[in-house]
Design a protein around this nucleic acid. Sequence first.
DNA 1: TATGAATGAGCGTTCATTCAT
DNA 2: TATGAATGAACGCTCATTCAT
Lengths: 192, 192, 192, 192
Amino acid sequence: MSKKDKIVQAAIEVFKEKGIERTKVSDIVKAAGIAQGTYYLYFPSKLAIMPAIADVLIEILVADIRKQINTDDPFKTQLDDLVEVMYQHTKEYRDVHSLVYAGLSSTEYLQQWEEIYEPFYEWLGDVLENAIRREEVRQEMNAKRTAKLLIGTIETSAEQAYLYDQTDEKEIDEQKKELRTFINQALGTKND
Amino acid sequence: MSKKDKIVQAAIEVFKEKGIERTKVSDIVKAAGIAQGTYYLYFPSKLAIMPAIADVLIEILVADIRKQINTDDPFKTQLDDLVEVMYQHTKEYRDVHSLVYAGLSSTEYLQQWEEIYEPFYEWLGDVLENAIRREEVRQEMNAKRTAKLLIGTIETSAEQAYLYDQTDEKEIDEQKKELRTFINQALGTKND
Amino acid sequence: MSKKDKIVQAAIEVFKEKGIERTKVSDIVKAAGIAQGTYYLYFPSKLAIMPAIADVLIEILVADIRKQINTDDPFKTQLDDLVEVMYQHTKEYRDVHSLVYAGLSSTEYLQQWEEIYEPFYEWLGDVLENAIRREEVRQEMNAKRTAKLLIGTIETSAEQAYLYDQTDEKEIDEQKKELRTFINQALGTKND
Amino acid sequence: MSKKDKIVQAAIEVFKEKGIERTKVSDIVKAAGIAQGTYYLYFPSKLAIMPAIADVLIEILVADIRKQINTDDPFKTQLDDLVEVMYQHTKEYRDVHSLVYAGLSSTEYLQQWEEIYEPFYEWLGDVLENAIRREEVRQEMNAKRTAKLLIGTIETSAEQAYLYDQTDEKEIDEQKKELRTFINQALGTKND
DNA sequence: TATGAATGAGCGTTCATTCAT
DNA sequence: TATGAATGAACGCTCATTCAT
């Protein structure tokens, strides 16, 4: 693993640990086992690491999705699995996610956010197009735009679920069920 | 207007202009026309004001919605209007909104986020229940849960739209149209 | 009790409680049950109360001494009793004592310290003069100067004893015994 | 000289000039010729430097004493010299001394005070033991305890003397004379 | 006298960034 | 490349004091 990756990994770890607290560069370098100055050989400023972190988060998410979702399954199954993976991912990384988002907010990097999500949009867009072709969903939709809507809906729902520490799993399951109905309707998913 | 409200108003203004990191307490008090120490009579720390700001943002949003949406209109019309108002609101306040969210992230206050949204959820939940009763939407939904999903979907979509400064209105209109289809389908809105 | 006295009493209480921590004017007024501004009707500044506190401390000490020491007793007995009372007093008030001393240090009031001790010096000077007259101690001493030395010696010894929280009473007793020998020798106290 | 020592030296100088309340960390670092942040690499807070200062003060005192006192001299002479050196030292450093003591009072460090004095107690304890062996003082004393009493007595006496700016040297000489008598008696110093 | 909200100068501390090695 | 001690600008917060009521 390159030193740069090591720094990014360490940063993610520290964000997860320190959670809500503000993370210092000195924490990151300590976790990465490098000297304070070394950080600046790879990133020009404290916030400059944020896009790299966001990239990794999306990479992890997309990798998980590819692993857990079988694109030969019926679309409805794939959709259910997508919800599961995204809930799982949100649960594990939601602190980091919101911190990174916050970090990007205070810089010129915010613009990159959508760009970073692009591979994810792309993947889901392809899946939707397949489903359209296979007539497993309604026909007249724009696959890419709908992919963005779908991702936004699932992600926000997951965030609402895990916003409270109180992981009342039963409550979460209810919400997940409602979500599945909501998006299946939205896409006009065929059942049989 | 109470002094506390004056501080909150001033904070919103300054956050809109400068962002969260770049905003000093001294900027807020200057804008509010009060002394530095006075701020701390009302809020124990710089970040402690965030929930109060979020409250105001939601108040404004809900007030706008009440003003612009006629609950006697067909549900479909109300939904269209809701999208318009929320897009408008996101456009105007999206900086503050994400800053406040970021600010809450770095504190123990994040938990309050959902609580603050409660009045909005409540309102839309009532509207949905009416629509269910009037058979303008599909029957088997849970109104409150669906309200949360709906709000999350519209809000995220609006955020995606205004994430870039480049306000390509045509592009935005396309996305808005796709969104309307998406949510109408999701709710099973009746057309006639 | 006058309001001024109430403030002084409250200040002593707060000093005892907060001990080592810096005490704020707001703590004092809260304890005294008065408004912040009222304090300044009686003392022109935060530190201005220090001499008044010192006065009270000495008053208490001298009152205790008068109560516990019988000036008709043999001088040696009086001396033993004096040691007891001063140790007791130091134990109870040593935090306040050092804080007041510190408080006076940072002002022009430090000069008053000796002045405040004057009644105590006076009292012990008289006792010593009696002892000289009664030939219970060596003859050639200057009563007033020796009183000051004696008080300083006993007080410092007591402070050394209670500097540590660890109140090893056995150790303290040993030191007290050594002290008694030391001062009896110093004064040439007659035994029989 | 190490950077830490440089900071301590500078702090002593500044405290002598300005007092503890009026001394800002920025004054200390300016005098030390270092950056503000550097101070905090060596001391975690403003007050945390106090024990280090106290250490230095005692070091200086003990060094002076070793230089000025000939341990081959008769004990009585050594005692006279000790009084001289301690008066001298108190005169020069009394502001810093009481400030440091006050500073320690407001922290958890107060406990260290006796610990810091330890080398001084040790030295005088040895001297006393020698005197006992040579039968220059009374025989039955505990050397270490008596050393503490002796130091306390002389120090307090010197502080009483220099508490007033008005250095009436004649008055001070009188008191010093009375002090010498007092402690010689206390120790049973032999004259011939 | 008494109040207590308001003041605002002032200070301790932090932490991103630099640079000599 | 790598180090980590040093930097110093920047800022949150405190708290003694004031003053309108």
